[in-house]
């Protein structure tokens, strides 16, 4: 493998890991703050991609689709928290698993009623549609680079909000000790609602940015859900930095696994997960058990 091919694969790995991070950070935030395991997270990723397809087809603009898609997901997140998720706080994990499974069935059926079973594609914005000519027969799409840049900005924003702002302080305090935060007079129920909505919006955003380079199809949420779980298990639950580490590890493992060990590439990330479980059961950046 020459240097250029290696560089291209490395970029692919990072880009893949970045999108994974967007989706998984939403999942880990929701679990870390709300203590709720949300299996429907992947369904919102799928929904984001469909919204991007639908809105872009109507308006002709990917940017409108992006903003509107995230906004819709955010509002849906607020509504869902208010109607369903709120009743799950303090309930056992089984109830959370089954409620979110019920949500998946409902969302999937709505998707089928609204968009059908067809596979769709979305065009990237015109000025990002080209590609860089690297060598005579090797080029790299501009849009993939743009994803890397965009996800980096979003990741930086997430970290800034969490580490530098008052909201971030509340979120961190809540992840540390829910009861104590509430006792200190912080309106935690409101925080919960917005964190859930942000988590859902991040999942949808992941689906929106991936739509132009992948196809939009009904089962896309399931694969992403499993991958986000693996990311969270690798990085440690509730840790956004852990999600970043886990997502990049999976991006690298999956991309280079397909290059070097194509026959076993589909199970490599699970081997990685097994290894991390043997080494640190609570994840690479997870807190140790008391």
């Amino acid at each position: 493998m020459d240097l250029v091919t290696f560089g291209v694969q490395l970029l692919n790995a990072i880009q893949y890991g970045m999108v994974l991070f967007l989706v998984a950070s939403g999942l880990t935030l929701v679990f870390g703050i709300l203590g709720v395991i949300n299996l429907a997270h992947g369904a919102f990723y799928m929904l984001g991609a469909y919204l991007a397809y639908w809105i872009a087809a109507y308006t002709g603009s990917f940017w409108i689709a992006m903003v509107a898609g995230v906004a819709i997901a955010f509002v849906v997140g607020l509504l869902l928290e208010n109607v369903f998720i709120r009743r799950l706080y303090g309930r056992d994990h089984l109830a959370q698993v089954l409620l979110s499974f019920g949500l998946i069935l409902v969302i999937d059926e709505f998707r089928e009623i609204a968009f059908g079973k067809d596979v769709h594609s979305v065009a990237p914005p015109a000025w990002l549609a080209g590609s860089f000519q690297l060598t005579d027969n090797l080029s790299y799409p501009v849009y993939r680079l743009a994803i890397c840049g965009f996800c980096l900005i979003v990741a930086a924003l997430i970290f800034l909000v969490i580490t530098r702002t008052k909201i971030g302080m509340i979120v961190r305090a809540g992840a540390e000790n829910r009861e104590m935060t509430r006792v200190l007079g912080i309106k935690f129920d409101v925080v919960n609602r917005y964190v859930f909505a942000v988590g859902i919006a991040l999942a949808a955003l992941g689906g929106i940015v991936i739509a132009p380079i992948s196809t939009v199809f009904p089962g896309m949420g399931d694969g992403m859900l499993i991958l986000s779980f693996v990311v969270v298990v690798l990085g440690g639950i509730g840790s956004v930095a852990g999600a970043a580490v886990g997502a990049l590890l999976i991006g690298l493992t999956d991309t280079f696994g397909k290059v070097f060990f194509p026959s076993v590439s589909s199970i490599l990330i699970y081997v990685l997960m097994a290894a991390v479980l043997l080494w640190r059961p609570n994840g690479i950046l997870g807190r140790r058990e008391v």
Binding site: F31, H93, I226, V230, V233, I267, Y270, A274, L277, E289
Partner: peptide, 24 residues
């Protein structure tokens, strides 16, 4: 492997390994 973890981790790990067999 999964029993090295607790609670929500256990759910995620069993889900992931189950899907590994699915993908296999």
């Amino acid at each position: 492997l999964a029993l090295r973890t607790r609670g929500v981790y256990f759910i995620m790990v069993t889900l992931a390994f189950g899907e590994m067999l699915f993908f296999l």
